[in-house]
Design a protein around this nucleic acid. Structure first.
Lengths: 173, 173
DNA sequence: TCAATTTAGTTGTGTAAGCAATCACTGTAC
DNA sequence: GTACAGTGATTGCTTACACAACTAAATTGA
């Protein structure tokens, strides 16, 4: 934050520049970090919007579906318990139930009862689901490139990766 | 992306490592950028979730309201046309109509007809709205610090700000 | 001057999210 | 064995968003 110098009673003394908003910063935040945060959420909004538009225009499902399909793709046995999946895609449990409903309705995954705990169930990727993920990837990838990757140089990419992994890794601090 | 070396027919030759997902990268994307993107969206999801939780626990309105209140706070005359506001907060026009409805219902802003164009209307910040924004800020700020700022050193903050401003500035590329 | 087009904002409808309550089952204690 | 607390997932309800259709007003232009 740029300190600015204001005349008062004949002498100059520095005051915190407030944009007229009376904002004070708590421990761990300053003007630079606030601005980084705003750049962060704006870049997210703009990027996601562009990528979703690309998927929609290609007649493909939204990003949330890709996330689920990807998590299942990399999971051992192409299957995850509902709560594991919910955690992986950052969604409430009830939200996930409905999301999985839709994917199941589209034939991209199926539910399977767990042998060891009859309350639980697995979401299991179907062949069609794997195919859909592969079909979505090029469009998604183009979106990432277009709305994100191509604006960054290699050093920035390195810093972003490392820093943001730390941010999300902290999770429930 | 780490090239890996695979034996084939007695000779070694480098292949793109695929995680078994058959992913290929288009122009402008590579493995590092894909990972940065994933770190980016995960950090966003986790951060926003934490901040919204903080606001909710303090009995305050959600982040979307803050955005509107802030834009109006910094706007000349504490007023913006609906479409300007919609653009500023990255929301569809219809979405904004409802959001402004809610804020107006809560007394945080009021609509005012425009003198020069009788189709349009201003959203004008009320004193109560300004007060609410000031009340929300400390909680929001703590959230930013907790879920974002405090995990970053000053160099990272600088890089993030600059890089992400470039990303969102590109807008509709 | 007056129809045709464009623009500003709202409304109808469908979809997706979360919370809280619930159902179904497990594991534990008595 | 049976009650009971805890867990996994679903369901009811509410809220919020987007798209498309609409209303009203401004602008164009013939």
């Amino acid at each position: 934050m740029s300190l600015c110098v204001q005349p008062l009673a004949g002498i100059f003394f520095p005051v915190i520049e407030k944009k007229g908003l009376g904002q004070a910063y708590p421990e761990g935040l300053d003007r630079a970090r606030e601005e980084a945060w705003r750049a962060f959420i704006t870049a997210y909004a703009v990027g996601i919007e562009g990528i979703e538009r690309g998927l929609a225009e290609a007649g493909l499902p939204p990003l949330g579906w890709y996330d689920v399909l990807l998590e299942l793709s990399v999971a051992p046995g192409h299957r995850l318990r509902m709560h594991e999946l919910a955690r992986a895609v950052v969604l409430s449990r009830s939200g996930l139930t409905r999301l999985v409903d839709r994917l199941e309705g589209a034939g991209l995954l199926r539910r399977e009862p767990t042998p060891e705990d009859r309350r639980g169930s697995f979401a299991v990727l179907t062949e069609e689901g794997a195919r859909m993920r592969r079909r979505m990837w090029p469009v998604y990838a183009r979106g990432i490139a277009e709305h994100f990757g191509r604006h960054l140089d290699d050093d920035e990419v390195r810093v972003l990766s490392e820093a943001l992994r730390r941010v999300s890794g902290a999770r429930s601090v």
